[in-house]
Simulated scan of single mutants.
Amino acid sequence: MTTIDWAPNTASVRKTGFGTAIADIIAMCGRELRRTLRSVDSLVTAFAIPVSIMLVFVVIFGGAIESDGNYVGYVVPGTLVLCLGFGSAATAVAVAQDVTSGTVNRFKTLPVLGSAVLHGHVISSVLRNLAACVPVLGVALLLGYRPRAGFVGWVFALLFVVLMILAFTWLSALAGLFLSVDAAASVNFVFLFLPYVSSGFVPVDTMPAWLRGFAEHQPYTPIIETLRYLLSGTAPGNTLWVALAWLAGILVVGVLGAALAFGRSVKE
């Protein structure tokens, strides 16, 4: 079985065996994980900031929103989704750095799968964000969070989270192929802002009427509600299909857009 590079060498079309392509992707993934471990900023972004967001909402704001202490059960899914989006957005900066520094063009001259660099960014983002979920959930449990999902519920929640990370990361990778490093850093704002205008932290029906329509129909609300249902052991119903439709659409746009943009940027 062979795989054809998204961005073939201008001199010849490179065909790479499936096993070699997998090895290239694993090598690029290891490169990104090592870069994360060597960067204090990346480690803080991946682990400390999500925990800090959890503490801010539960400890500082929680008492004002729900004085009975049950707010932690409501806010954990929203915080997780916000943190996963925030962590995935870091891929935009990493990809922009590779493009602007000429790293992508250097990889083009090597006998490796050119698109492996993007796959490496995406896979390392999945692993990094899954690892970041552990301390967030740990802190939530210490604060009184008690999910009621059974084994099957946790499996579906994990698969849903992985799909979420893939969709957010591919969209971020697409942005990184077009933007400068400084501009790519602003992608974080989108992933940080939209969860606040959703059901992630307060019920939508508590919002002003002029804002409620947007909050109900933007992608974060069904995504957060689905994760909330899964972790609580409740069937998500139609909310699941709406969330899956949003994530599938984002994933398709991210993957196809990145494939086209990556091939064009390398040829140029």
Rank of each mutant, 00 (worst) to 15 (best):
V56M: 15
A132F: 02
V204S: 13
V197W: 10
G30S: 10
A183Y: 04
M164Q: 12
L256H: 01
V76H: 09
L113Q: 07
L33P: 02
G19H: 05
G114W: 04
P50D: 06
G120D: 02
G254N: 08
W154C: 07
R31N: 08
M1Q: 13
I250W: 08
I25C: 04
G85Y: 07
L163W: 14
G87T: 00
I224V: 14
V72F: 05
H121Y: 02
V59N: 13
G63D: 09
K267N: 15
I22Y: 00
R38P: 02
I53H: 10
P111W: 09
A140I: 03
E66T: 00
V162E: 01
S232E: 15
V40T: 14
V197I: 15
W170R: 06
Y196T: 11
T45Q: 13
K15A: 14
V59P: 07
L251Y: 03
M164I: 06
I223R: 05
G153N: 02
L159Y: 01
L130N: 03
L113E: 06
N238T: 13
V126T: 02
V112K: 09
I123A: 00
P203N: 09
L118F: 11
V56K: 04
L55T: 03
A90V: 01
V99N: 12
G200E: 07
I165R: 02
V58A: 12
V76S: 07
D68G: 00
G153E: 09
G249D: 01
A175D: 13
S198W: 01
A23G: 15
S67L: 03
R146D: 02
G114T: 11
A215F: 08
L194T: 14
I60E: 01
L230Y: 05
G263Y: 04
G257N: 12
W170Q: 09
I223V: 15
L84V: 02
P135F: 10
W154L: 15
T20D: 14
G87A: 08
F189C: 03
G254C: 11
V99P: 06
I250A: 12
P50N: 07
A215Y: 08
V155Y: 01
L137D: 02
E268R: 09
L143F: 05
F86Y: 15
A23D: 14
W210D: 11
I4W: 09
S88W: 10
Y229R: 10
E66Q: 13
L130W: 03
